[in-house]
């Protein structure tokens, strides 16, 4: 049971960063970026290049990859989403499907379909009584908490954070108050790009680096974000942890390969009962 809880928390933490990225972009741009899964895969592959092809240590490759992909995310926005900004969330959603397909096939073209692994030293798992914690899980724990802390501090206490929250809260008033929306949008994509890359690395550590990795995370990430109330970035983290635990506990009664079904059932139940999210307050558009 203790082991299940630990695994559930780790699974939830893996979801937390992309869910945070998804709801961050949603809160400012009002569209659900379906390509968030592909962003995760792309980031993971960029870091793979640094780590395995160029021989950097993983932390360095991850930092470089995150910085690079953050810029790419801004570039994608500039090319694909910005021209469609005034055309509504649905058009952007469909466009993000196009972006997702394009990115995934860039990966397939250059890297093929075979799963790959990062070059990290193999270490024995640590034991705490009955509970086993391997090094990858420890890395995930530390990295996700660190990233969440940084984002939370930016959000809560900095000028940039106030800018982002102001635009998310009331874009018209933010413009009246002298905040440039396009700058906020660029910052949001930078942060989202870094978060998805980092999560791609962690997912790659936990399992493998493969073109499908983002796709398998897409549904859980959306569910986690909806659990939190999709326009509420920090609550998305709570949603991710809840979902991770639910998925792991469900393995007691369901085969492991049906994780996705657990996710789906959680989402459906939530949409029927509390569509504004488990932790969110009712969304009022005014």
């Amino acid at each position: 049971m203790g082991q299940l809880l630990v695994n559930g928390i780790v699974a939830g933490l893996l979801l937390a960063l992309p869910a945070l990225a998804l709801s961050l972009t949603f809160s400012v741009l009002r569209f659900a970026n379906y390509a968030v899964g592909s962003y995760l895969s792309c980031g993971a592959y960029l870091v793979y290049i640094g780590n395995v092809v160029l021989g950097m240590p993983l932390w360095l490759a991850a930092s470089a990859g995150a910085a690079l992909f953050a810029v790419i995310a801004v570039g994608i926005d500039w090319l694909a989403y910005r021209p469609l900004r005034d055309r509504g969330g649905v058009t952007l959603l469909v466009a993000s499907m196009g972006v997702a397909i394009a990115l995934e096939n860039v990966i397939r073209f250059f890297a093929g379909n075979l799963p790959r692994a990062y070059n990290v030293p193999v270490a024995r798992p640590m034991r705490f009584g009955d509970i086993r914690l391997n090094h990858e899980q420890l890395t995930i724990l530390v990295a996700v908490f660190a990233a969440l802390a940084v984002v939370w501090i930016i959000f809560r206490f900095t000028r940039l954070g106030r800018m982002m929250r102001a635009v998310a809260d009331n874009p018209d008033l933010a413009a009246v108050r002298g905040i440039s929306r396009s700058r906020v949008v660029a910052y949001v994509w930078l942060i989202a790009g870094m978060l998805t890359t980092l999560s791609g690395v962690l997912v790659g550590l936990d399992a493998n680096v493969e073109p499908q990795m983002g796709w398998t995370y897409l549904l859980p990430v959306f569910t986690a974000a909806i659990l939190g109330g999709i326009a509420n970035p920090m609550a998305a983290v709570a949603g991710a942890l809840t979902l991770g635990l639910a998925e792991e506990l469900a393995t007691l009664v369901m085969p492991v390969h049906y994780r996705m079904i657990v996710t789906f059932l959680v989402m459906v139940a939530l949409l029927l009962v509390r569509p504004w999210g488990l932790f969110g307050t009712r969304w009022v558009t005014k």
Binding site: R159, R162, M163, R165, A166, A168, D169, N170, D172, L173, A174, R177, G178, I179, K286
Partner: peptide, 20 residues
């Protein structure tokens, strides 16, 4: 909709000040 509803009063005043 002339305030940022999810921000504190102080933050509203800060946002009013710092970008203008």
């Amino acid at each position: 909709a002339n305030i940022f509803r999810n921000m504190t009063v102080l933050e509203n005043l800060q946002v009013g000040y710092e970008f203008v």
